[in-house]
Simulated assay, not measured.
Amino acid sequence: MRRNERGSALGYFLAALLGAVLGGLLVVNVTGKSRTPVAAVPPPSPVKETAAVIPNPTGAESVAEAVKQVGPAVVSIDTRVMPKRAEVPDIFRDFFGDHGSPMPQQGKGSGVIIDARRGYVLTNAHVVKDAREIKVTLPDKRQFTGKVVGQDEQSDLAVVRVSGSRLPQANLSAAGPPPIGSWVVAIGNPFGFENTVTVGVVSATERDITPEPGRTLQRLIQTDAAINPGNSGGPLCNLKGEVIGINTAIFAPAQGIGFAISSAHARTIVEQLITQGKVVRPFIGITYTLNTPEFRDYFELPTSDGVIISDVVAGSPAARAGLQRGDAIVEIDRVPIKKMEDLQKEILKRKVGAELDLLVFRGKESRVVKLRTAEMPANLPRPGQMQREMP
């Protein structure tokens, strides 16, 4: 009996040792060329309760099915951009020499086919900006020459057209914001790795971000699905296989903070880009910042509500109405302005040519300023380019 017990114990020991060695050999370093064995983590002690697992809300095949529906319509977009030649005075050109035209630059992004019959591809405006050549590649390796139908820098959306038959198509959802915490899938071509799929959740909706002065991207979906350079213009989809957003930006200092333009907002932009080649927006011609107690005291205002005008575009409705830097706008058509985005949202609700009543403070004096909105220029001057003196 003792020999059998001893033999059994030895057998268990050898089996455990062999399992540990094999387990260690199976965990390898795949980041480089070498495959160095890494020690396996010892198994935990048995517990009575079942270990927690990451939930899959609708079944193991949900992500795969969503990718199966949307993936074939996700394209890679390669562009060729010719940088503008620097304007150099002849005296310096003669001294330093003329090195000829600048070298063309290559760009890469993603897109999604939203209309197979007409060959419309939705992507980001910054993906195709100033592109002289556009090459669109499908997952089935077919390649087409793309032509920009329309682009809108303000929303960072563009529509590119390709001529081809039997094109796949993805469904651009018309629904409102997705539920926060719901699962989403991002598909694109980050760093040229074609048809890369990442998974995350909706972290927030209706986000507004300002990627550069004078331009605000609105109604964005925030997600922790990995988004990298090259993902721009690719779809963010739900587990039903519907495109709910167009991936457009990341918050570089952090991890897991990416943004997509909501499909509901994108649909309104796409319709205008296809029919008009541009987006028509109302415009009054100011840039502004949120009022604060410091601004209130500096401009001798009676309130710290509203926004402070920081620049006025020459020749704009605001300039013609006599608005100036330092004026505080506290109401628009009797709607209080409490946050930065309130003024823009109220203006965008109007059509071009609509009349507005602005309650404005200049120092301690209040006045109602009437003006009519104009069409926002295609090349809207940035704050640094705006004329600071009133005409």
Rank of each mutant, 00 (worst) to 15 (best):
R161D: 08
S110Q: 00
A318P: 02
T145K: 12
E331V: 04
V312W: 07
H99Y: 15
Q154E: 12
Y298E: 14
E153A: 11
P235H: 06
V162Q: 01
R6G: 08
G19L: 12
D90I: 10
Q272N: 08
T31C: 12
P57W: 07
H265D: 15
L220M: 08
T205V: 15
M376P: 04
G188L: 03
K278D: 10
G256D: 06
P381F: 04
R85T: 12
S101C: 05
E49Q: 14
A266M: 08
G363K: 08
P139D: 05
G315K: 02
Q69S: 13
P381D: 03
S62Q: 11
Q106W: 08
I284K: 04
T292C: 05
S173R: 04
I309V: 08
K339R: 13
D311L: 04
A60G: 13
I269A: 03
P102C: 07
G353E: 10
P139I: 03
I221K: 05
Q154D: 10
D208E: 15
E153N: 13
T123H: 06
V330I: 02
T198D: 00
F95Y: 11
T58V: 14
N56V: 15
K48P: 05
L26Y: 11
K349P: 07
F361C: 06
V159N: 03
L358T: 00
T292Y: 01
G363C: 06
R350M: 09
V128L: 00
D297C: 09
G192E: 06
V149C: 07
T268A: 13
V21T: 01
T248E: 01
K349D: 10
V21D: 06
S316R: 10
P235Y: 06
E153R: 12
L359M: 09
G192A: 10
G71S: 05
I284A: 00
Y298C: 04
Q151T: 09
T145C: 04
V136Y: 09
P178H: 09
P104S: 09
E206F: 13
Q387M: 14
I113K: 02
D156C: 04
G322P: 10
R267D: 10
K48W: 13
I54E: 15
S34G: 12
F13R: 08
A319W: 00
I257L: 07
A175E: 15
R372C: 09
W183F: 15
K135F: 14
M103R: 14
L290H: 05
T123I: 06
R320I: 06
Q69L: 15
E242S: 04
L301Q: 10
K68A: 13
R35A: 14
P43W: 03
G256F: 05
D115H: 04
A16P: 05
